[in-house]
Simulated scan of single mutants.
Amino acid sequence: MIPGGPRPVAPFSHAVEADGWVFVTGQMPTDPAAPDAPLPEGVAAQTARVMENLKLVLAGVGLGLEHVTMARVYLTEFERDYAAMNETYRGFFTPGQLPARTCIGVTGLAVGALVEIDLIARRP
């Protein structure tokens, strides 16, 4: 668990490392400083909050988004939110250095979120 990290919504670790690979649990758009506050409005704001939470977890293990090799994105309103999520998501990475990614439409996410993202990173 990462001190000061987002409050887990289920029994899991923020990240687990094995042989230099770091598996970051899917993060929700909750505010670590106010975990009971309402979620941000709309998928763009929720994506930004999720990415900030992922950065927080990565920093807690001494890594950053530049170490991410794979991302999985889960959207509850795939057709409606795909373009807006992509626009926000893309802005967190250096142009031309995006990780591999899968994006999946799902029927629901914890805490009523519109988006959840998990990551795989590699320690240099």
Rank of each mutant, 00 (worst) to 15 (best):
V24G: 08
E17I: 08
Q46I: 09
I120R: 04
T25L: 00
G60A: 05
T25V: 02
A100E: 15
D19L: 09
G96P: 05
G112W: 14
D118A: 00
V57M: 11
R49D: 01
P3V: 10
A45Y: 12
A71V: 15
Y89P: 03
A59M: 07
P32F: 06
L56R: 12
L65Y: 04
C103K: 13
A18H: 04
M28D: 11
T94G: 11
E41W: 06
R72H: 03
D118K: 03
E17F: 12
A100F: 09
Y74W: 06
D31W: 00
V57C: 09
L39D: 07
G4T: 10
R101G: 15
L58P: 03
R72N: 14
E87P: 08
V24R: 01
N53I: 03
I104A: 14
M1T: 15
C103F: 13
V106R: 05
D118P: 03
H14K: 00
Y89E: 08
T47L: 00
N86A: 11
A100C: 10
H67C: 12
G91T: 06
T25N: 03
R80I: 13
Y74I: 08
A121N: 02
A110F: 13
P32R: 00
G64Y: 15
Q97W: 14
A84G: 14
T69W: 14
L63P: 02
L109I: 06
Q97T: 09
S13G: 14
L65H: 15
A121G: 15
F92C: 05
H14N: 02
A18I: 07
T30M: 01
V106I: 04
E66S: 08
A18K: 10
T107S: 11
V73N: 12
I120G: 15
V9S: 08
V115H: 01
N86L: 14
A83I: 11
V61F: 08
G112F: 01
L54D: 12
E66G: 11
N53Q: 02
A110S: 09
P95Y: 04
A33K: 05
T88F: 04
P95D: 15
F23L: 13
Y89L: 04
F78I: 05
M85E: 05
R122I: 03
E116I: 00
E87T: 07
T94M: 15
D36C: 03
T69Y: 02
H67M: 07
V50I: 10
L54P: 08
P124L: 04
A83M: 14
G5R: 02
G108I: 05
A100I: 15
P32L: 01
C103G: 04
A59G: 00
F23C: 02
G96I: 10
E41P: 03
V115C: 09
A113E: 01
A84L: 08
P40R: 01
E52N: 09
G62T: 03
A100T: 12
M70D: 03
L114I: 05
A59P: 05
R49A: 00
Y82H: 13
P99F: 04
E17Q: 15
G96H: 07
P38S: 05
E79N: 14
P3H: 08
A48I: 08
Y82S: 11
I117F: 02
A84K: 13
I120H: 06
A113Y: 04
E66M: 05
P40L: 04
R122W: 01
T107Q: 01
G62E: 10
G26C: 04
F12S: 10
I120F: 15
D36H: 14
R122D: 05
D31R: 02
V50K: 14
G60M: 12
V115S: 06
C103V: 09
P3G: 02
G96E: 00
